[in-house]
Design a protein around this nucleic acid. Structure first.
Length: 286
DNA sequence: ACGGATTCCTGATGGC
DNA sequence: TGCCATCAGGAATCCG
């Protein structure tokens, strides 16, 4: 459930805590949390500096610097459903950590900071890459465009991969990271509600006007969610441990059986692309 | 070839 | 009160 707005919020709250710090220790408490294996991960990360924190789709990226200011590769963190990345200072104890990176102090009157990756359901991963190697990672290389920087023309093209309009259902395309990067179940449902399009509408049947409306809805919902620091259903927290507030603005996600906020009709739920999808049968059309 | 279904995980939840 | 089935879902993998 950490999707684009949540990862963006984590990146923004993590950056001032960890950027320019040196990784002085690497502790892996759960071997399945790191790629490509515990020893290789430590080798790729230990002694590097965190030069810059960034985001691509739902990936949190730590760009590293090696001695002499040379490119030190990249760590890509995928939180999947319940992953968290927290920056904690000395004295605080991380709960159920899978990986802990101990970072240098900025000055002598300040203690070290730890970057903690935890994840109760253990679906998330930290992938370490040597310089340039992330570009050979299949998942990364096939990521679709960023919804907040693409144009409406790009978006129309997304829905017609290879020039042929897709016969897939629109929600399946929105959730496909190779089509457009960063959207998950929450923001797909919210954007489709705002655009008045049913999640099971066949993409090829949506006209140009309809696609433009959907694109505007996607951007609007992502921008508002970032402004609210993401959505905290249960697990999501930013790098300082704070919850987001966008869950208070949900109009579709998780509202099955409740009245539509626009027309009062009972919201229905449907399984599309293996996900629970909630929509208003009156406001949203095929 | 393409799209849908299954699998991996654990904690919260609801019914009996 | 306690137990058990069910549900949550991102993406790799399997299947039709």
């Amino acid at each position: 459930m950490p999707e684009l707005p949540e990862i963006e919020t984590i990146a923004r709250t993590l950056a001032p805590e960890v950027e320019s710090r040196l990784i002085q220790a690497v502790d892996v408490f759960d071997a399945s949390a790191v790629e490509p294996g515990v020893d290789a991960f430590r080798e790729l990360v230990l002694g590097r500096r965190i030069a810059r924190v960034a985001r691509r789709g739902k990936l949190l990226l730590l760009h590293l610097q090696a001695a002499g200011g040379k490119d030190g590769g990249t760590v890509a963190v995928h939180l999947r459903m319940t992953g968290r990345v927290l920056a904690i200072s000395t004295g605080q104890e991380p709960k159920r950590p899978r990986v802990v990176l101990t970072l240098s102090a900025y000055s002598s009157d300040e203690g070290p900071v730890r970057l903690v990756f935890s994840d109760v359901r253990r679906f998330g991963r930290m992938h370490a890459f040597a310089p340039g190697d992330i570009n050979h990672w299949h998942f990364y290389q096939n990521l679709g465009p960023e919804p907040l920087t693409m144009t409406v023309q790009d978006f129309r093209a997304c829905l017609a991969p290879g020039g042929r309009p897709s016969r897939a259902r629109i929600k399946a395309l929105l959730l496909d990271q190779g089509v457009i990067a960063g959207i998950g179940n929450i923001y797909a449902d919210e954007a489709l509600f705002r655009a008045g399009i049913r999640p099971d509408a066949v993409a090829a049947t949506l006209g140009p006007g309809c696609r433009a409306v959907l694109f505007a809805a996607i951007q609007a919902v992502l921008i508002q969610a970032i402004a609210e620091n993401g959505s905290s259903i249960r697990d999501y927290r930013d790098a300082q441990g704070n919850a987001g507030a966008f869950q208070n603005f949900f109009q579709a996600y998780g509202r099955g059986g409740q009245g539509c906020l626009t027309c009062g009709t009972i919201m229905q739920s449907l399984r599309v692309a293996g996900r629970t999808s909630t929509f208003c049968p009156r406001c949203q059309t095929p």
